[in-house]
Structure formats: C-alpha cells, structure tokens
Simulated assay, not measured.
Amino acid sequence: MIVLLAAALAGTTPIDDGAPPQPVAGSPAASAPAVTAPAAPAIAPAVSSIPEQAPARAPDGQILPVIVLPTVTPVAANDTAAETQPADEGAIVVNARRGPPPGDPVIALNKVTFAATQAVDRAVIGPAAKAYGSIVPAPIRTGFRHFFTNLTEPVIALNFLLQLKPGKAAETLGRFAINSTIGVGGLLDVAVAKPFKLPYRRNGFGYTLAYYGVGPGPFLFVPLVGPTTLRDVIGLGLDRAFLPAIVGGPLRSPAYVTGSFVVRSLNDRLDDDRRIQAMRKAGDPYLAAKEGYLAARQEQIDELKGHKHKEKAAPAPDAQTPPAAVNPAAPAPAPTGPATTGPAHAPDGQVLPPIVLPAPAPAATPAAAPATTTP
C-alpha cells in the first residue's frame, strides 16, 4: 500500500525487473513525445562471445540501451609470412630466367640478322670469294691486302699516342713511311723483314676506348660487319672516317670506297673460310660466332694492356739438383716399348710425322758376389 501510494503521488507506476517506466495518464510525461531507443547493432557471426554490461541510467532516470561492442579477433604477426611460405618446405623451387642473356639484350634481332647473313654468304659472298681466289693470283691478293693495311697505319699510330705509347707510335709511323716508299705504295710489306723488323700491330679507336675502361656494351651482329659490340662499332666508324676526313681526295670518291670495300671483303672472306666452316659445324653456330669473337677481342685488349695470355707450363727441373720427388732407392722401371713424340710443326705450318725414338736398353744389375765360406 505504501508503495502504491508513493507511486500515485509521483505520477508513475512501479518498475518491475528493470523495465522502463510507463507514464501515467494526465501526467506531464504522458504529453511528451515518446522516445524510441535505437536498435542494438547486429552482431557479426564471427563473434564468439559478447561481454554482458549492466544497464546504464540517464540523468532523468531513464534506462539507456546496452551498447554491445564486437569482439576483435587478434591477427598473428606471422600469418602473412605463413601465407607466403610454400606448403612443403622440402620442395625445390626453380626460378627460370626470363629475358635475354647478359650482354646480348637484342639476341632476337641478332639471330635474325645472323641467319640472313649466313644465307647471303652461302648464296653470294662465299661463291664470289672462291671465284675471286681462283681468278686473282695469290701475290696480287697479298698486294691488295698490304695496300689497304698500310692505309690504316696513321690511325694506328694516333691511337698509340692516345694510349701514351710514343715508342710504338713511332714504330708504326716508320712502317708506314718504309712501306709507302720502298714497298711501292704499300703493296709490299718490307718493314717487317730485316733490317727493319717492324711488325704490324693492331690498334684503333675501339682499342683506345677499351684501354681506358669503356665496356664492350651489348653484343651486335651487323650486316657487312659481322659479330661486334657497340663499342667496336663506334671505334670502327671512327677508324674508317679518320683518314678520308684528313686526306680527302680519292679516298672520298665513291669508286674507291666501293672498290676497296669489295676487295677487302673478298680477301677477308677467303682468310676466314676455315673459321666460318668450323663455326657452322658447331651445335649452336650463333653462340659459337659470338663467343669466338668476344674471346678473341678480349685477348687483343689484354695484350694491349700488357696482360698476355700464357699457357702454364710445368717448370723444368734443375740439372744440378735432382727433383725431390725422385727416390734414389727406387729407380723408375725401364720402358718396355719405343718412345713416340707428339706431332711437330715445321716453320711453314705443316705437321711433321712423329719421331720414334729407340727404347734404351735396361741397365744390367751387377750379379751378387758368391758367398765365401771360411775353412
């Protein structure tokens, strides 16, 4: 009764189990618009448990809705690494190289040019070079070769000067002067023989670039030039343009330029016939031509820098001191057959037949002295 009386005086009804109070008719709260509590947010199905909170009350006595926060599942730090790792740690992963090989970025274009050049060589240049070699006598072909080589001597001397080698530059200019006068305009290479003994040395702007550390750049297979590199193409262009730009005159005429190019090309094709045939017999002719050129070029550059390629030979034993590996107590067994030497080369390059040396007779061991007995 006391509770009902207090509720009537307050204008409200009793509250049961935390339910919101209901306004009494005629009270001020009944005339106010009803306040609808916002609906609780939906709970994600991933949430396994929701913490329970006690109902909160507003300052005016109304009970506020319970705010439910979804449980955040922690992510392990190594989950990303676990996803990137292969399922089978013992599996062998093979990463294939994609793209061109190092040093040959335009290998696709080079192979097309190489195939086209070989086709033209088989059909035109090779037969023309053989016809040229059969028609023109060898002394005349050699004279042409000496003449065009002599015209390169000023360029070679200039590059020796650029490489700070004045001695070799002076020798090259001496060769040019001797062969241009005594050698009948360079048709004869008299400077290489006695009493001058001035050998021909290769050099050019491509050598100078390499001498000062310029790399070869990408490998190229250029028509009418063959295997080369970007550095050597630039050097060759400077070599061919230097003398005509300075001397001028007939060296610039189209007749001389065309005729000299044809004669040099035919001579070079005859000289390189064996190398070309060996290259075509290789498993990969393109790779053989590429590696052969790069190896020969690197050897020339190393020789220019003073790094000569020498074969490592076993040192000869001292004649006065016997080798330490020989044990005097155990003499080597005598040979049972004739000794045969390897093929020797004559001065003209021909291979001589092997020389058979007679086998030395084994030394007779002294017979043991008969045992003497004392009477």
Rank of each mutant, 00 (worst) to 15 (best):
A10L: 13
T13E: 05
D16P: 02
D16F: 13
A19W: 05
S27H: 09
S27A: 07
P33R: 07
T36R: 09
P45N: 06
A46Y: 13
Q53K: 06
A54I: 02
A56K: 02
Q62C: 13
V66L: 08
V68F: 15
P74G: 14
A77T: 08
D79F: 13
T80Q: 07
P86K: 12
A87G: 05
D88Y: 14
G90Q: 09
I92M: 07
I92D: 03
V93S: 03
D104M: 05
P105Q: 10
V112M: 15
A115R: 12
R122D: 15
K130W: 15
G133Y: 14
G143W: 05
G143A: 04
R145I: 08
R145S: 10
I156M: 01
I156W: 00
G167L: 07
K168C: 02
A170M: 05
A170K: 01
R175E: 04
S180M: 09
L188W: 14
V190M: 05
V192A: 11
F196T: 13
R201M: 09
G204T: 01
G204F: 04
Y207I: 00
G213V: 00
G215W: 00
L224D: 08
T229W: 05
L230V: 01
R231Y: 01
V233S: 01
G237M: 02
R240S: 04
P244G: 06
I246W: 14
P250Q: 11
L251G: 10
G259V: 12
V263S: 07
N267Q: 08
D268T: 09
D273P: 03
A278Y: 08
Y286F: 10
A288P: 10
K290A: 07
E291N: 11
G292W: 11
L294W: 12
E299M: 10
D302G: 01
H307E: 11
E311G: 12
E311P: 05
P323H: 03
V326F: 11
A330K: 15
P333W: 12
P343L: 09
D348I: 08
A363R: 02
P366V: 01
